[in-house]
């Protein structure tokens, strides 16, 4: 009896699993079907499944894109005091690790926290700009939840919603949006004065549609105010949660948007870079997760007028949900995005 060779691959939590080539192919097909079922995106074609199969059934430890097909890495979180001072971290990424762009940020990464230390952060950006070459942005996550009690001044919509106080919850979210937009613009004002090249709204939409609305509104204001300053808008998840449910941008309801429509609104607001996210299912193989990610993000690529940098870090974009990421998994995600979607960066 012929028994198919079992190949080492990984699950979404990073653990090794040995699957046959047929099993990996079946997972790729199932991942594509899962994307289609939820987001109504087209299924991946046989040629795309076969291409992913070559990548995920390969026994090699490390693979890469073809020479000449390299992309930009947006390198979020490069200056956050990982191993030295934040400026030394930025210099390390630039000088030792070949980062294409750099990002200054604080460890907490939340807008509301940074709002209280704007002057310090601006001074740090000023100093950092004097001793780096690569473009350097300032990054925060809008994290609208921190604007609600007990951390912030607004009523807590997560407490109001289970009580059926829908109108009160929506009013609290709308109040938080106003505060967040004002804080985002103040942050951009101070960072622009300090010499920042761009602002990065990272994990946008973690608090659902109100947070996505705040990021869109702030992006539009900042880009109109400072046309030479970039705004990168990166998402928190593949789907905008309807925490409010009735918020719109340009007549488009925000709740329930998938990557393509998120991108269309981001570029309409004036963003210069967009980072779609597809979350990893830790109970499925990386092949399943990658096929799902490719299928969900693929519709973006035909309509994008700005660079698309899918998030491919811990727990997103076919990269395992594990803090010390295995290189064999990371390089496969990078190759898949570049060769199947022709992404502008990661």
């Amino acid at each position: 009896m012929n028994e198919e060779t079992r190949l080492p691959t990984r699950m979404g939590d990073g653990t090794f699993v040995c699957l046959t080539r047929s099993e990996i192919r079946a997972d790729l097909v199932a991942g594509s079907e899962a994307a289609t079922k939820r987001a109504k995106v087209p299924l991946l074609g046989d040629d795309e499944i076969d291409h992913l199969l070559e990548i995920y059934a390969s026994p090699v430890r490390f693979i890469g894109v073809d020479v000449g097909e390299e992309i930009v890495l947006s390198c979020d979180g490069t200056g956050m005091k990982t191993h030295a001072t934040r400026i030394q971290d930025l210099q390390s990424y630039e000088q030792w690790m070949g980062a294409d762009l750099l990002e200054l940020c604080v460890g907490d990464y939340s807008l509301k926290v940074v709002r209280t230390i704007l002057a310090y952060e601006a001074q740090y950006m000023h100093d950092a700009q004097l001793c780096t070459i690569a473009p350097l942005q300032y990054g925060v996550m809008p994290n609208l939840g921190l604007y609600s009690k007990p951390d912030g001044p607004c009523d807590n919509w997560n407490e109001l919603l289970p009580l059926g106080k829908i109108a009160e919850a929506r009013a609290a979210e709308e109040e938080a949006v106003e505060m967040a937009v004002a804080d985002m613009v103040k942050l951009a004002d101070s960072q622009r004065e300090a010499g920042a090249d761009a602002i990065d709204w990272d994990t946008t939409g973690a608090s659902g549609d109100p947070e996505f609305l705040a990021a869109l509104r702030a992006t539009k204001i900042i880009r109109e105010k400072y046309p030479d300053m970039g705004v990168e808008l990166g998402m928190a998840g593949e789907f905008v949660l309807g925490m409010h449910g009735e918020l719109e941008w340009g007549g488009k309801r925000l709740a329930g948007l998938w990557p393509k429509d998120q991108l269309l609104l981001a570029q309409e607001a004036g963003a210069t870079m967009f980072g779609p996210v597809v979350n990893v299912n830790t109970g499925k193989s990386l092949a399943w997760n990658m096929a799902r990610a490719i299928a969900l993000i693929k519709p973006c690529m035909d309509v994008a007028t700005i660079p698309v940098h899918p998030n491919a870090g811990m727990g997103v974009g076919g990269v395992p949900m594990f803090v010390h990421l295995p290189s064999d998994a990371v390089c496969r995600a990078a190759k898949s995005f570049v060769e199947l979607l022709h992404v502008d960066g990661l």
């Binding site: 890495l73 490069t78 980062a99 690569a134 390089c331």
Partner: peptide, 28 residues
């Protein structure tokens, strides 16, 4: 970062990654 850089990156200031990134970031 290193795995992504080796697999797919232009290479920052080792090559011209920072220059291409600048046109993406500030010019879209």
């Amino acid at each position: 970062h290193n795995a992504h850089a080796q697999a797919a990156s232009i290479g920052g200031i080792r090559a011209a990654g920072d220059l291409v990134a600048r046109m993406q970031m500030t010019r879209g």
